[in-house]
């Protein structure tokens, strides 16, 4: 598999009337990565994903998928992209078998054996109507449609938002098995962060249409520290490190910092920051601030 990014955006922006839903978005998605796209509702996640799959024209900047424009060269690009929209829309009156048949007819590349084998493995009856399936099962059908294209890129828009915890696990398990099997690159958007740490290895956060955090999750977490100590001015820490969030009680100061090197001052108790805390801290921060973590050298498998 080549090393060039599966998705590359440069100053990408989308405006609806006078307001920008997405602005100044520059990022790369590496092959084989599983990227979480995180942000509150209305932050621009769906806009970004739609631009990536060629739905809508950029108002500024550019987007490339597998080296090509997903909108101008849709015929060549989209055969390699699987997409599951929010709430996984399906035709409720079709049976599962008919739905798979639709997939077979609509896609130039389609692995019918894989599709049916997957449905069988999930314990579903191909004769059942889609409308009578549970939310989790419908999500799995939508995922099967996307995966049976044998795509190089899988784009999932809030795929588990409406699912119960078990269905969430099963859905994400299915996605990760596909990654393990075929090395497919995944971008999945979510407004819930807590479960993503075990599933995703890269993160992009969006706030008000701007990217704030970007990079490998391990690097982002390694660069940030929670410092707790006696009530103090953040100024001396801020001289060396970037203070992302500070809070004070009468006797105690808590700082979430992006460290530039080691934190040597021993008056601070140091803690790791988890992903959810990190995202929340940046979301509450000045929206203009951003950080892209350095990428380690790619390791050959």
């Amino acid at each position: 598999m080549s090393d060039s990014p599966v998705v590359r955006t440069l100053g990408l922006g989308k405006r609806y009337g006078a307001s920008w839903a997405l602005r100044d978005c520059t990022l790369e998605i590496a092959p084989g990565s599983v990227t979480a796209l995180v942000g509150s509702n209305g932050a621009g996640k769906t806009t970004l994903l739609h631009l990536i799959i060629g739905l809508g024209r950029p108002s500024a900047g550019s987007v490339e998928v597998l080296g090509r424009s997903p909108r101008d060269e849709a015929e060549n690009v989209l055969r390699d992209v699987g997409f599951v929209a929010q709430d996984h829309p399906l035709y409720r009156s079709l049976s599962i078998a008919e739905t798979l048949d639709m997939g077979r007819r609509l896609n130039p590349r389609w692995d019918d054996a894989y599709a049916h084998e997957r449905i069988g493995r999930l314990g579903m009856d191909p004769g059942h109507r889609v409308g009578r399936l549970s939310g989790g099962q419908q999500a799995q059908i939508a995922l099967t449609l996307a995966l049976s294209k044998r795509p190089q890129l899988l784009v999932l828009d809030e795929p588990v938002a409406s699912l119960d915890p078990l269905a969430r696990r099963e859905f994400l398990g299915g996605v990760l098995e596909a990654v393990a099997e075929s090395g497919v690159t995944v971008i999945l958007s979510s407004h819930i962060v807590s479960e993503l740490e075990r599933v995703c290895d890269h993160l992009i956060t969006l706030t008000d249409g701007h990217t704030q955090l970007e990079g490998p999750i391990a690097e982002l977490l390694a660069r940030h520290r929670l410092l707790i100590g006696p009530r103090a001015d953040a100024a001396s820490v801020a001289r060396v490190h970037d203070v992302i969030r500070e809070s004070h009680t009468e006797r105690q100061t808590t700082l979430l910092v992006r460290a530039n090197g080691h934190v040597y001052d021993t008056c601070w108790q140091q803690h790791d920051v988890d992903l959810e805390e990190l995202v929340l801290a940046y979301m509450g921060h000045n929206p203009g601030a951003s950080f892209a973590a350095p990428r380690p050298e790619a390791v050959a498998r």
Partner: peptide
């Protein structure tokens, strides 16, 4: 196998690798 661990724990295959 990587696939078995991914299936049981719902974690990123790169973690297992």
């Amino acid at each position: 196998t990587v696939k078995e661990v991914v299936s049981t724990l719902t974690i990123n295959p790169n973690t297992v690798l």
